[in-house]
Design a protein around this nucleic acid. Structure first.
Lengths: 215, 215
DNA sequence: CCGGCGGTTAAACATTTGTTTAATCTGCTC
DNA sequence: GAGCAGATTAAACAAATGTTTAACCGCCGG
């Protein structure tokens, strides 16, 4: 009687609202009621379209994963021919832009951060589907940057060190703003982050062998 | 009538049980009922001694913060005389042990991680009281490791890169377990983390200048 | 002895929240 | 227009959980 919007896109609206709310509140604290309210839908919409709260969460990840994969497809194509140093920079730039700027889906990054702090049952599928492919891609670049005989474990550890810098700088914004106030979280700031992490990490992986020797 | 323990240490028992439960479940998912059950206390104990659940949480934080500060006092005293390389290692070891092992309070890391995503009024005091002092201490070591003329901004960025590795490895355990399964989260694993981060970061800060030149 | 007082217990309360059920509406087909 | 299927709404339900209230117990000073 009241409104009965019926634009036929209720499912999609719920999905988008869920993205925002889950990112802001986390899985536990996010409530179905707030999601459907933001979506302008009825309380039952979630259970109707996604069976239950978990189903909604899962559907959200699937959709985000699809979209991210498409957006990366061509970005990675262009990198393939570059020398590893440039490829590392391009990779870093892509990650930082996606995590720091990206007004399109600001909730994706936060969702991941959340899963790391408070892992839900989703973490396994998240790693398998989303994180590992990107990790392996970066690991290939790192391997190309290091001496021929470098062990696989060392390569993966170094890759993790690089990922760590990106993830931390992107999501510890509140702290870094106070500790390194010169670092702004805008387009120029992202470029500065890329430069720093690239230089720091290149210096590290290139000279790690000699560091080991001098032990 | 049933038991009426009345050992007079109910408050302390609740505090310790709360540490365990908060660490295992996180703030939201931890329930007062489970805490008091483990403590062998009554449901009302939390509200009686700490006003409410938040009060208990913050009391726990204050107590842990005090304890951590005391435990660092002498640890840092011993480092002062060491050469910067050894001091970095000692610092890293201290951080990793505190974040990864240390059954007492792994929940501190969680509180911080949460504050970074969802800053509340706690973040400012947390940075001022807890994070910044440690950051500055590490920055001093980094400065000693780098060439004389290195800019302050560069030193702080490098410090942040080191912090990033520690924080990330400590709190993305669920992901790293799958990406670098060789890295165990026990005493030996911590030693391996210290070694890797030390080598990676030493190679980085020592050779950053030459990396800049070769740009 | 006893009256209060801090600590403890037990029960009730209020609220939130995910889920289910049934009613209502819309658009389409026959 | 009748009817049906899917979509949407509204209301009820059940469980969990933080909080509050009141009763209970042991002790100690008067």
């Amino acid at each position: 009687m009241a409104e009965h919007v019926d634009n036929g896109d209720t499912r999609q609206r719920v999905l988008e609202a869920a993205g925002e709310v889950f990112a802001e509140k986390g899985f536990e604290k996010a409530t179905i009621r707030e999601i459907v309210e933001r979506a302008g839908a009825n309380l039952n919409a979630v259970n109707y379209y996604f069976r239950d709260k978990k189903g909604l969460y899962f559907a959200l990840f699937e959709e985000a994963n699809e979209r991210a994969c498409r957006s990366e497809q061509d970005a990675f194509e262009q990198m393939r021919a570059l020398p590893p140093e440039q490829r590392l920079r391009a990779h870093l730039r892509h990650m930082f832009r996606h995590l720091v700027l990206c007004r399109r889906m600001p909730w994706q990054a936060r969702l991941m951060a959340r899963e790391m702090i408070e892992p839900t049952w989703m973490l396994d599928v998240l790693v398998k589907q989303f994180i590992r492919p990107r990790f392996e891609g970066l690991a290939c670049i790192v391997r190309d940057l290091m001496p021929a005989g470098t062990s696989d474990l060392t390569v993966r550890l170094c890759t993790e060190s690089i990922v760590a810098q990106v993830v931390h700088m992107a999501h510890a914004r509140g702290v870094i703003n106070q500790l390194v106030p010169e670092l702004k979280y805008d387009a120029d700031g992202v470029e500065a982050m890329v430069e720093h992490v690239a230089m720091f990490s290149l210096a590290a992986v290139r000279n790690l062998a000699s560091e080991e020797r001098s032990l």
